[in-house]
Structures are given as C-alpha cells and as structure tokens.
Design a protein around this nucleic acid. Structure first.
Lengths: 314, 314
DNA sequence: TTGAAAGCGCTACCAT
DNA sequence: ATGGTAGCGCTTTCAA
C-alpha cells in the first residue's frame, strides 16, 4: 500500500525494481491514484482558480489558454470562474473557487476593484500601478513602441483614440504614446465615449496617423475612414493594440502592438506555484514588455501627399 | 458532527432551529465543508471537465462562458482543458481531467475525431450528423434562415463563401443556404482555401449578396469590397455567422446568424448532470435552432441599381 | 527496502 | 430529532 504510493509518486525510498513492477501493473489495471484521497491527505487539490471579468472579451481567451498551458506544466488544473464584470461577481467567483478547494487563485481584477483573498495564495495580474500587482503587461512601453514606429515613418500629426478615459489600461497605453510624442509631434487625444471623431475633418487638419487602444477600435477607424474615402494606409495610418486574431483577418491587415501574453501567464503561474510550495524566496512583482508588428494599416507619412481624394475641408 | 453535516447540506432530518444555529455559527467561524473530504466520501468532486480544441478561436469563449454559468447553477465547477487542435491533445486533455477527478466531461470534439470516454460520463457537443452527438447547433437551419432573409430583400444572385470545404460545420451551413436557394436563385460556392474570390468581378457579374460561414470572413469580405469601391450594403449585401463581439464593433455592423449558445450549454450541462445523478430517463440528443439579426451589412437588392460606382466590367 | 497503521474531513448508517 | 462511528483512498511516520 505505502510502497505503491511511494513508487508512483517517486517520493519515497523504493528500489528501482519495485517501481518497475508497480508502474507496469498499474498500467495493466488502469489504476491511478484518486485525486480526492490525495487531496484530503495532503491538503492540496492540484487545482488553481482563474478569475477574469469576462472571457468573452478580447485578450482574455489568450490569457486563459496561456494560464492553462503553464499550469499544466506544473501539474495543476485550471478551474474557471466568471467575475461577470462586477466587483460582487468577482468576489462570488473567488469564494466559489475557494470552496471548491483550489490551491491558489489567479485574478485579472475587474477595473477599479481590489480583490481581497486571504484564504488562499493568489496572484493578481493587473497594471504596473496597482499595489497588489504581481505581473503586468507594460502598456505604457507598448504605447511608446507604437509612437516611435509611426514617428520613424515620418508622421507628425497624431490622433490618439481611446474608448474610455476611466480605464487604467487605456490611460497607460495613451500615456506611453504621449511620452514619446510630447515635444516632437502634434497630437490630440479623443475618447469614443464622447462620440466618434470626424475622421474626414481630422485628416483635413493634417492628421496622418491614428493610434488606438485596441484592434477592435483600429478596425472601426479603418472602416469608418474607408466610408469617407480615406484609404488606409495611403491617406492615413492606423495602429491597433493586442494583436487579436482579427488583426490578420481583415484588409488592410492591422499593424498592432502585441502583449507577450505567454510570458505574463508563465510568471503568474510560477509565482503562485512558489507561494503554494512555500518557497522562502518569491519572484518580485514584474512587468512584461510588448513588441510591435507592422502590417498593412500603417505606412510612410509622405504617401499621403500623393492621394488625390481629400476629406472635405471645412 | 453528523448533525452539522446534515444541517449544512439540508439533506437530513434536522430541526429548523438547529439549522439556524449551525448556519449562523458556521458563518461566524468562517467554516465551510472541505471539498476534499466530501469528495472522498461521496465519490464526487462537483467538478465538470470542458475540452475544446482551442479557446482562442471564435465561438469557444462564448461556449466556455455559457457552460461555466450553467454548471455553476447546478453547483458544479468547470475545469478547463485544451485539446490543442489535435486528436492526441484531446485525448491527453480528457485523461488529465479524469485524473483530476472530474465527475463528467463536456467535449466539443476536434474535427474528425471521436473521443472515447468510458471512465466518466460525458456529453459530446458536435454536429447533428455525429452519431455521438448529444447537443448540436443547427447549422443547416441557420444557413436557411440567412438565405431566406436575403431572398426576401430581393437578392437573386449569391456568392456562398467558406474557408474550408472539409469542415463539417461549414458544409452544413452552406448546405442549408443551398437548400433554400436551389431553384429560386443563382448561387456559386467558393472556398478561400482556393484563393479569395475577385469581388469586383463577381459584382460585375451580378452578384448582390455574399453569404459567409463566419463573421470574421464576412468582415474580410466587407473590407476587401470597400477597397474595390463596393460599398456595403449599397453595392453588396454581406451576411456573417456567429454574432461575434466584433459584429457590432465595425462599420457597417454585421448582419449575422446567431447560434443559441446559451441553450446549447444549458442542454449539455443538463444532460451531463442527469447522467451523473444516475437518472433513469436521460434527455434525448437534440439540436438547437439559430436566429438571425439584420444589421447594416445587408440591404435591399434594388438599392444596388442606384449606386454609381461600379466594379470594372471585364 | 518494505510494510503496518494512523488519520486527513466528510457523510451515511445506525442507535439513541 | 440528534449524535456516535465506520470508512472513503491516500500519504506519512514509524517499525521491522
């Protein structure tokens, strides 16, 4: 009984010979240790909880996938819970996970909330500014990257477009763009919550590059622009964010700033695993840089001059 | 000890009075029953496994969300596993879930595979044609719905556009379209795996409506058309499939055929719960009908005549 | 190197 | 209506 346990887990002091016998016989019998029995004895379930506001929204599926992959490497399973886009839903999800017996929880917090998890180890994946943050994507650096690329293409008048001025992520991204642009190019910040900007007019005023906070928004810009006769990238360059699957599914394909989701997931899981193991030395909170991919939606600023169609000038 | 258990689970014969006392004291103490202990004793973990080919692909996130919501209503948690787009990965995922002690598994099988799960109850969410299928979306009926709507708008020449002629889902969808169109309108089927069709040419040949097998593809059509000066829906009507979040994020917003994912999930979970409970009478395999939503990407066929811009006629 | 036994927290049976 | 007790399958300590 005990010997079988030792042989199968590899923990104990068992002869190579016995290990062979046990493993092969277990294979024949289709035996594997009961998760419940083991969990009861060890006090660990081998399951991690994952709480996200809404897996239906872009970026979250990639994250879920990445976390699952990383967790699997460490022998953990992932129990999903839906924060339902509210602080209360998030708390309920966390509670549910704990009652299901998870060993730890990874949370991407609902905007503006600070999940308080004490019953179980946790890793918060938030923004660099969040004091609870364990790993975050470097949104500001991503914004900088995009601005520099467009600058290099010769653009000097920018429209920076967000959806919601209250989103920390969006503020960070646009903040990064501004860091680079300030003093070296003209820029204007717009939020679609205040209405979608008049692209024809902006273009007439000399805007040649539009940077957005998401691929979805970039796509919206490209299609709205097309309706007004502004070809992309000839008349106007458009930059997305996140590198969603749709970025390559549309024409023009979207230039975009891509977060290193895999690395983010790896660090979150590694941290949590360390806490669960009881490591004395835990990984320090960190930030993961982004990269950029230039596709068809951006081009040199000069091309614009050769474009005959113009937005109507007021 | 036993009384507390009975009071908390509501199973046993305990006085209302004691239930009150126990619950309130449990609340003060922050006590809740250990999942591991319960699982060991009852032989049930209260966890369902979910295997999908790739949560990163459209539709799967909605499905995951729906399954999680339904499972939660029945007190089940959802353990995710990634089939990695291959039959082998799928088998590995299933095995992993079983070893984690799940009570049952929901599988959306990788195309062309038939997962064989014997150790644990399972619900296969596939296509109506699959003999193992428990619940499926009615892709053919969805295709019919779309074709009828476009017919009603006066369209008489169709392009039916798929990505991959080997996909059962795509064949079903296009098959449904053809059911309706056959004999009453002209149509042509194209697959992007053979190259993307020349939209200008198709339009010049009189095609006024393009039906696709996915919103992503519809979006591609809309943007490609725009580049060739074909306004949507004035010059050409485009129909999507699946009602992804992006369908309303772009201009024109996409008319699309929407699967009733919530109902699909509900039935899958209900079936699995019934098997686990050991119900004598199990729900019969069934098929869930789709609905349609007409937005900006489709319009009356006649409008096309008033459009001055034309694709170049060969 | 191997094996016997205790006990993790719960529920279900049975006695009170 | 309440509570004592056995035992779910495992790991771990201790003895052989």
């Amino acid at each position: 009984m005990a010997t079988v346990s030792n042989a199968l887990t590899g923990k104990g002091r068992v002869s190579e010979n016995v290990i062979q016998q046990v493993t092969s016989r277990a294979g024949q019998l289709g035996y594997f240790p009961s998760a419940a029995g083991r969990a009861l004895k060890t006090g660990r379930s081998g399951i991690l909880g994952l709480v996200m506001p809404d897996i239906t929204q872009p970026v979250f599926p990639e994250f879920a996938q990445g976390v699952e992959t990383e967790a699997d490497k460490c022998g953990f399973g992932i129990l999903m819970a839906n924060g339902r886009g509210t602080g209360a839903g998030q708390d309920a999800a966390i509670k549910k996970l704990i009652q299901h017996g998870v060993d730890g929880i990874i949370v991407i917090p609902q905007r503006g909330t600070t999940p308080n998890i004490s019953a179980v180890p946790s890793a918060i994946v938030s923004t660099p500014g969040d004091p609870d943050n364990i790993v975050a994507a470097n949104h500001a650096q991503g914004g900088q990257l995009g601005a520099r690329a467009l600058l290099a293409l010769g653009h000097r008048k920018f429209l920076l477009l967000g959806n919601d001025a209250h989103s920390g992520v969006q503020k960070d991204r646009i903040g990064g763009m501004i860091d680079v642009l300030k003093g070296v190019a003209a820029y204007e910040v717009c939020w679609t919550s205040d209405g979608f900007p008049d692209l024809g007019q902006k273009h007439a005023h000399g805007v040649s590059a539009i940077m957005t906070v998401s691929d979805l928004l970039a796509l919206r810009v490209v299609t709205e622009a097309a309706r007004r006769g502004l070809e992309c990238p000839q008349a106007i360059s458009v930059m997305g964010f996140d590198d969603l699957p749709l970025a390559t599914a549309v024409r023009p394909t979207l230039s975009t700033i891509v977060p290193n989701t895999a690395e983010l997931c790896k660090r979150a899981v590694a941290y949590l695993a360390a806490v669960i193991r009881g490591d004395a030395q835990l990984p320090a909170p960190s930030v993961v840089d982004m990269t950029i991919v230039l596709r068809e939606s951006t081009g040199p600023a000069t091309t614009r001059l050769s474009n005959s169609k113009k937005g109507e000038i007021k």
